[in-house]
Structures are given as C-alpha cells and as structure tokens.
Design a protein around this nucleic acid. Sequence first.
DNA 1: ATCAGCAACTAAATCGATTTAGATATTTTA
DNA 2: TAAAATATCTAAATCGATTTAGTTGCTGAT
Lengths: 341, 341
Amino acid sequence: MASRVTLDHIAQHIGVSKTLVSLVLNGKAQQYGISRQTCDRVFAAVKELNYRPNQTARSLRTGKTGTIGLVVSDISNTFYAQLARQFEDLATANGYSVIICSTDEDVEKEQRLITMLRNRQVDGLVVSSSQSNAEWLMAVNDGGTPLVLIDRHLGANTLTAVVAANRVGGAMLANHLFEQGYRYPLVIGLSTNHISSVAERIEGFVEVFKGKGLPYAVREVGFNTLRPDVENLLANLKLLPFKPDCLFAVNNNVATAALQSLAAMRVKIPNTLGLVCFDDLPYFSIIDPAITAVEQPIAAMCSKAFELLQIKMVGQGVDVRQEILELPVKLNVRKSSFKKS
Amino acid sequence: MASRVTLDHIAQHIGVSKTLVSLVLNGKAQQYGISRQTCDRVFAAVKELNYRPNQTARSLRTGKTGTIGLVVSDISNTFYAQLARQFEDLATANGYSVIICSTDEDVEKEQRLITMLRNRQVDGLVVSSSQSNAEWLMAVNDGGTPLVLIDRHLGANTLTAVVAANRVGGAMLANHLFEQGYRYPLVIGLSTNHISSVAERIEGFVEVFKGKGLPYAVREVGFNTLRPDVENLLANLKLLPFKPDCLFAVNNNVATAALQSLAAMRVKIPNTLGLVCFDDLPYFSIIDPAITAVEQPIAAMCSKAFELLQIKMVGQGVDVRQEILELPVKLNVRKSSFKKS
DNA sequence: ATCAGCAACTAAATCGATTTAGATATTTTA
DNA sequence: TAAAATATCTAAATCGATTTAGTTGCTGAT
C-alpha cells in the first residue's frame, strides 16, 4: 500500500505511455525529443497524483539499490557512531542509504549479516571486519559486491582498506610516555588481538620500549567481559613481573573501563599511574586529569573509503588495486601522562 | 552481477519448475505435497550453485522489504547510538534491517529523508521527529507507512509514541536539587524548545521550583552552536536576574558542553555550582565529580516501539490506538549535586 | 470400466519500474 | 513527388521472485 500511484497511473492520467513518463522523470526528455508541453503535463500529473517512484521496482530492473552496508562491531561505540555519521553524510549526499549492522566481534554473525546484505543487493559494503583472514571477504568482493575495509585491514594484496596509522600512533604514545619519564608500561590489549588495528597499535608501542631495552607487559581483556577483566587486571598488578608506572589502553572502551576501575581504587593519575589511550573521546578533554590520546582521522577515513568504494561500484568488474591506505593520526597530549615527578 | 544464480537456474539444474523451487524454499513443500526427494534435490542444488535469493525481486512481488527506517537527529549522539544499537538487535532478530538517517534537527531534511525511505518501500518508520506538529507525519502513517515516534511525541491522539517520563524526570532532578539545598537553578535548554522531550523536562523541572516560590531562569542554546552558546551563557551569569547556584542541562550534549566550559573557567562542581543532567552517559560515573543524571530506559523504549510498530506493520489498515507511552526513568544521584555546604 | 480424489507438480500472471526496438506523422531534401 | 530525415511517442521485453489456477497421472471405490 506504500505507493498506490504507479507510472501507469501517471501515464493513463495524461494519456501517454509509461515509457514516456519514465523517460521524462529520468531526465531523458531532451535526448528522446519529447516536447516541452508533454514534459510539463507529466510533471503536473506527478505533482497532482503525488507520485513517488517505487525504488524496489527500479532496483530490480537496474540492478542497483542505492544502498550501502556498513558493518562494524558495535554501533553504540562512540568511534563507530561517529564514523557512521560521517559515512552517512557522504552516502546521502551521493544518493545512497546506509544499512548499519553490529557484529559484536563475532565472525559467524558478521558473515550472516553480510550475506543478508548481499541478498538485499547492496551496491557495496564497508566493513570493519572481525575475521582473521581475507578469504571469505575476498569471495564477497569478487562475487560482485564491492567491498572496502575500514579501520582494520586483512593484509596486503587482499582487499582495499582504509585505516588509521595504528603502528605510528602506538609509537607516538610510547615515545611520549618515555619522554615524560615513564619506564614500565602495561599495555591493556583485547582478546581480539588478531585484529590489525589492535595488533599494530601494540606493536608500534612495544617496539619503542623494546628498542630502549626497557621492560613492558601486554595483557588482554575480553571484548564481552571488558569491565571485570580490566578491574581484575588492575587489582592484581603485583602479579606482573614489574610494577607498571603507566597504562596504554588500546581503545576507547578499554580506557573507559580502566578509568572506572582506577577511580574505584582511588589510584591517582598521573602521579601513581600514567594513562594514554588510542582513540580520543569527547570527554577525555573535559575530565581531570584530561586523558592523553591519539585521535583518529575519522572524517578522512570515511571520505577515502567512500571514494574507493565508489570507484569499485562504478567500475565494470575492473577492480582497483587492493591497497592499504594509512591515514595520519594526531597525538593529543594531556594531563594524564604528565611528567613523572 | 551481485547474484547471478536465480530461481530459474536452480529449477533448470534439477529439471523442475521455478514454482516448485520457490515453494520448497519458502517452507510450503508439505502444504503443496512436494515429495521429500524433490525437496532434497532442491536443497542440494541451492547449496551446489550457492543460490542466494534476490530480496529486491521478492520485495517487489510481496510488497514487503523487511526494512525499517530509523530517523533521529544525530546518530553520533551517544543516546541515539545506544538506541540504534538496541533497535538494530530487535530488528535483526525479527528479520528486519535498519536504515539509519540523521536529520540535524532540520525539518526539511527530515521530510526529505522520510520520503526517500518511503520510496525505498520501508515496511515501517521509527522517528524521533524535529517537527512541531504531527500533520505531515500522520499523512505518512495514514499513507501506508506505519510510523511510531520515539523519544519525542507530537501530542495526544496523533501518532503512537514511546517516550521517557520526561516531565517526571525533570521534577526528580528539581526535587533532588532542592533537597540538597540548591535554590537558584539555571536551566540550559535548547533552541529546539518546541520538542516535547526538552519542553517537558523543563516544565517538570521549573514547576517544582515555581511551586516553592523560588526563582529560576531558563536559557536556550542553539543545536548547531552548542559549545559557544553554552560558553557564552556561563561566562555571563551576571546578566541573569540572580546568581544561580546550580545548572540543569536538558540533555547529554548540553551537559558535556557545560562541563567543558566550567572546566576551562575553573568553576568548582558542586561547590560553586551544582550540576544535573537529563540523560546519563557512561563517563558521568567515572569523572570527578561524577554527574547526577536521569537515566532513560533505552532498551525498554526500543522494545515497546518495535512491538507497536510490528502491530502496525502486520495490521491490515486497522490502526492501533495512537497513544503516548511514557516509560519510567531512573535518577542516578552522584557527587555533582551534593549538598550545598 | 468409470470417475472421484489425491499426490506431485507447472504455466502464466504479477509486482512497477527501465530499456530496446520500433512506429507514426510531419518536414526536409533531391 | 518520392525518399529521406526528423520529431515525437509507444509496445513489449525484462529484472527475479511469489502466487493463482490449473494439469497430469495414479489409486481405489463402485
């Protein structure tokens, strides 16, 4: 019932063929030599009958739905929410709609959702994948659904990916901590350690300390048990081979969980423990102490991802080079990592 | 190219009609007396040829797309991001996909987006509307696209709406502040003051102070100029008829902007100024001082909205009673509103 | 032997657009 | 004046499913 007025109704209403109406509405009047008067009659009828084209019928015929699937681990995570917003704006400006899906870092769920999106004939996919190899997703891309990875890549020469400079950002944080006098870092990573973003942040970070011959510890917390795991980890710092003097939270959720635990334990930041985080949050700059963080280039990532996806979507089978695009990050130094006294 | 294998291919591959294949795949084999062997051959062929049904074609025929439009002012706002996530889970569990659109509180944009969603033949809409009257949206609902309002209503006997108990929540905050000894509240509202949620929060709040014969001030800040407006307002408190001893931020963004300004001005909370907020954020409980806030029943709102929408979607033209459903909120008392000393 | 009834399947219409391949007048050209 | 060119418009096929209205060939009852 959603649209009872069809092209045929318009056509009959003014006594022409639906072909003509279709041509006029698609701006091909000139090309097909349709007279100005006839065009005007079409437009008038469209307005009078309040005609709205049925996108489903159009999609069936053209094979294009004007829809893009955006697959992330959790849309309620501020990082992905901001990313989704930026992407939505780009998509809308270009006539696309966005279907957003959350995978909870569950590979099976990710595959189910992507299959569902393909069945819905999305024109393209932007995926922050939880998978550990590219095989399945490459089949999707090769199978006719253009796919661009965002935030996480799956290795060189697999799939086009747009990511932040995770390794560099990790190193920036490590160097900053070192310069501020910190020597014993504890890295709080995630159980999803196969994921490129997390892995590279940690690698970039530890390489710095390793290079200086300093000790470091890396521990993992579960994606679905983040809060208790972090709490447990911080309550048992004595179990570590050394007493850490600073923490590196590999993403915003880890940092928030750490802040919660530390507040409950009344640990002073940065006096007792310095803290830095990969991924900046609005509240990091307004709390005391403000949190030092690496800010990701969300807008730029979306622009680039959309641009690359569009090339794939219009390109007839000819695939672009499957490159990994790393965009520069920014270090926001704040009080949580001030010089150790 | 997205799906080259069609029902016809399956049918030809095993030498039956596509009718049969369709019936089998839709679980109507029993009903149409199709033999078990034939069914098995269909399933085998589906697997062998890796058939995925074309949802667009199905939608055209059945008139159902299995898609719901979720329209909010800004998906990057944590409140809507959380709401979207809850709603997505419900939708997915019931076979629906969600297209999310952000309106930026722009009525024209909202109407453009909703029209676009209708053209895409969404089965239903969930809208947090920026409009000030129900007329346009009622036409959508009556025109065949079931619509449920969420977070904001548009008056009794207009459109089904699921909202938080905004007035009650506002009053809870006011009573709490009064009990803590605060007497001179400044309400920081939004330029979008025609919106039911904001309006009712403020009404509920000021009624309490009015009832006690106490003064209060209500000022508005712009949705798109939030940060500077709040900063400007707080820098010029002397322009108010009285010196406020506490602030009521009507939503999470206002509170965040206020916290930013107050931090920059080095104003002590709650000593110099108490602060409460409608809508809780994860970080409110981990900062010092923690922020007293009213927590909205996001999960319950989504469940109820989805439930009501589903009734409308399956109901053949028979519309449910257009009621406004208010769900209870929870007051989380924290340090930012501790007793004035 | 005939026919009702059943089991197992199919042809064709349909959804609402786009698009291909013309059709019909009218005007221009040789 | 006939043929060619042009201007304006249309019939029908098509996309890939669902669904309606049958068809075909048996079996068993009478």
